[in-house]
Design a protein around this nucleic acid. Structure first.
Lengths: 297, 297
DNA sequence: GATCTTTACGCCATGCGTAACGATA
DNA sequence: TATCGTTACGCATGGCGTAAAGATC
């Protein structure tokens, strides 16, 4: 009933001889270290450390146990690492950037990924729609879920994970709010936001620059930098903006209405990463994404 | 996060190549074996066994992992065993015989014992008051908590763990039931049970053979063999019987009354075991008992 | 149909963090 | 008083058993 975790803690403390540093190294609290050592001492039947609030020292018993356990612990760790290497299992931390609701949209992919790669820690960062590629460029995310088209020389576009219709977000007091649906031509009559720092091709996915008949679609001078600012401006009637259908599901704000744009092609969402920083972890995530899309077409 | 327990299960299955036998050997269910192996395979990233309901076989990956882990597991087990040997820690199973409520009375001792010797499994057997030493003699208990005096050539009397006053159990319709207390002399007027197979000296602890003035205290011909039979007979008014005060706390049956016997010496309860089978385990229990009595005098 | 493994579900033991406390200089 | 280890308590993950289902002969 002494488990590997306890042995790990014991060995760490035996080397550090300091509860605080041991806890830090293992990313746990000193309380846990204390509890674990206490448990080990129970099991063994005697004290492994002599300690007070000023000093920590191995007892003879502890010293011997350290000798005996460290070799075995090494062997086991190495054995598992070897087997993991052989299967190509990956581990580490992967930071994924998503725009609010989209994280939930790809939950099946993340679930599969986490269960097939239990030693990977997934972290999340919020992608701001006005600047969807910034998080990748700054290195704050390893992979991001963004809408296409993305054709940047430094970025790789991975598997498409999700497809969503385009709706127009308008204030409830806007004339279009009453409409069943609108068409792109209608956009020529109203002012849209310039969403922010993003390539024109991406901007056009939700917000074309011209109507089918060739009329320009105007941009507002306002430059919101976060998604909530965008929602606020739209609600206040300062403009309109194309958005994914998913937004309508998650942001049913009072004062905000979503109107389908019937002649805009659906927007595809894909995993994107820095080509230069592609890693086994990223490939594994891409693999999981392809698995899921293939089983639920 | 693969723990020693999983490794133990993996190694066992790798040797047995059979879920049922593996489960049996480890005293777990086949479901647990399956879950644990599944977990290990997740962690490692690939299958360790090829298996169907007819056959279980190691994969190449599993075979290598077995090689690598078994040595490490051995080392760790040995290391811990060595340390335990050095501290004189004990393990195994100890069967303790007690009469109903008394098990609760010595709970502090058992708690201390279990926490200081976590690798010991304590089992319980019920001692029948009419034959308090039989469980020891038959080998069904390693230690028993019985009342003194015990002076048998084959038995060792360990530490005294509890002391209790003597009460007389009588039927509620018995004349003594009304009394505040009685004295031993009063016992001469009524018929008591012959409790069963036990030494006369022990019998006398609760049920003297003569009153202080020298009158004999009569025995009933009935020979109850279990405690519940005794209670039934007393309740029905077929006799009376001395009992420990503890009995009154736990057996407040309707129809049963307990009357203090004011001039009988309190009865002492001690741990008793077969001298020939004294073991480190038994000594450890005795030690715990002495610890507790010394801190709560 | 019999034997063997896996899955689904629920319980509870225990790993772990938080916060308060205790000891040492 | 500042630093460091321990204790008390509560939450939640995960180990484990039960029962039922799925696979193979």
């Amino acid at each position: 009933m002494v488990e590997l975790r306890d042995i790990e803690i014991f060995l760490a403390l035996a080397r550090e001889l300091h509860f605080g540093r041991t806890a830090e190294r293992l990313h746990i609290t000193t309380a846990r270290v204390s509890q674990s050592i206490r448990k080990a001492e129970r099991r063994v039947g005697g004290p492994l450390f002599e300690r007070n609030s000023r000093t920590v020292r191995l007892t003879a018993l502890g010293e011997q146990l350290q000798q005996d356990l460290s070799a075995g612990y090494r062997q086991i760790s190495d054995g598992i690492a070897k087997a993991r290497a052989r299967t190509g299992a990956v581990s580490g931390t992967l930071t994924l950037g998503t725009m609010g609701p989209m994280a939930h949209t790809i939950k099946p992919v993340l679930d599969l990924f986490e269960s097939t790669h239990p030693d990977v820690t997934l972290r999340h960062r919020e992608v701001q729609p006005p600047a969807p590629l910034d998080l990748l460029r700054s290195g704050d995310a390893d992979v991001a879920l963004v809408y296409l088209p993305v054709s940047e020389p430094d970025l790789t576009v991975g598997p498409v994970v999700h497809v969503s219709d385009v709706l127009l977000m308008v204030s409830t007091s806007h004339p279009y709010a009453e409409r069943e649906s609108i068409c792109v031509e209608d956009l020529g009559d109203h002012c849209a936001f310039l969403p922010g720092r993003l390539p024109a091709s991406m901007e056009a996915a939700f917000q074309p620059f011209h109507t089918p008949s060739g009329r320009p679609i105007a941009r507002s001078a306002r430059l919101p930098s976060t998604w909530h600012e965008v929602l606020g401006l739209v609600t206040a009637g300062h403009g309109v903006l194309g958005a994914a259908r998913d937004a309508a599901l998650y942001y049913s704000w009072p004062g905000l209405t979503f109107v389908p744009v019937r002649d805009m092609p659906p927007v595809r969402w894909a995993l994107v990463w820095r080509t230069a920083d592609e890693s086994p972890l990223i490939r594994a995530l891409g693999h999981a994404a392809r698995e899921v899309s293939s089983e639920t077409p």
